[in-house]
Simulated scan of single mutants.
Amino acid sequence: MCTHDPACPPAAATDHGAARPVACHPEQGWSLLCNGALLFEDTGELLPNGEIVAPHRPAATNLRVTAA
């Protein structure tokens, strides 16, 4: 149960990734949020109910590079 004020979004909410981390292991590539969700460095997620969220990296954008 989240004890933060204001409370973090629950794992079932669409903004569950906004919850505060309670354990971070960058050497292993994951963080545990206070709502029980596991976030992985490849942007995949594992929710407390066992649901897997596939990695969802932002789509590439068209960048224009100009010479200086």
Rank of each mutant, 00 (worst) to 15 (best):
M1R: 10
T3R: 15
T3M: 12
H4A: 11
H4R: 11
H4V: 03
H4L: 05
D5H: 13
D5N: 13
P6A: 05
P6L: 04
P6F: 07
A7Q: 09
C8W: 02
C8Y: 02
C8I: 02
P9D: 05
P9N: 10
P9K: 01
P9E: 03
P9M: 08
P10G: 14
P10L: 11
A11S: 15
A12K: 12
A12Y: 13
A12M: 12
A12C: 11
A12F: 11
A12E: 14
T14D: 15
T14G: 15
T14S: 15
D15L: 04
D15H: 07
H16K: 13
G17Y: 03
G17E: 05
G17R: 03
A18V: 03
A18D: 11
R20S: 11
R20K: 15
R20A: 09
P21Q: 07
P21N: 08
P21K: 02
V22C: 13
V22T: 13
V22Y: 13
A23H: 12
A23W: 10
A23L: 14
C24K: 14
C24N: 10
H25K: 15
P26S: 07
P26C: 07
P26G: 06
P26R: 02
E27S: 10
Q28G: 07
Q28T: 06
G29V: 01
G29Y: 02
W30C: 02
W30Q: 08
S31Y: 02
S31I: 01
S31F: 00
L32S: 04
L32V: 01
L33N: 00
L33K: 01
C34R: 02
N35L: 11
N35H: 11
N35D: 10
N35A: 10
G36W: 06
G36L: 07
A37R: 03
A37D: 10
L38G: 13
L38T: 12
L38N: 07
L39S: 04
L39G: 00
L39Q: 04
L39W: 02
L39A: 12
F40E: 07
F40G: 04
F40V: 09
E41T: 10
E41S: 15
E41F: 14
D42F: 11
D42H: 12
T43A: 15
G44K: 12
G44E: 10
E45N: 04
E45L: 03
E45H: 04
E45A: 02
L46V: 06
L46Y: 01
L47F: 00
L47H: 01
L47S: 00
L47Q: 01
L47G: 00
P48R: 01
P48K: 00
N49T: 14
G50P: 02
G50H: 08
G50E: 12
E51I: 06
E51M: 05
I52T: 11
V53F: 06
V53C: 05
V53I: 08
V53A: 03
V53P: 00
P55R: 09
P55V: 06
H56P: 13
P58M: 07
P58I: 02
P58G: 04
P58S: 07
A59G: 14
A60H: 12
A60W: 08
T61P: 05
N62L: 13
N62K: 09
N62S: 14
N62C: 09
L63W: 13
L63D: 14
L63C: 10
R64G: 07
V65D: 12
V65Y: 11
V65Q: 12
V65R: 05
T66S: 13
T66P: 09
A67F: 11
A68P: 14
A68C: 08
A68H: 11
A68V: 03
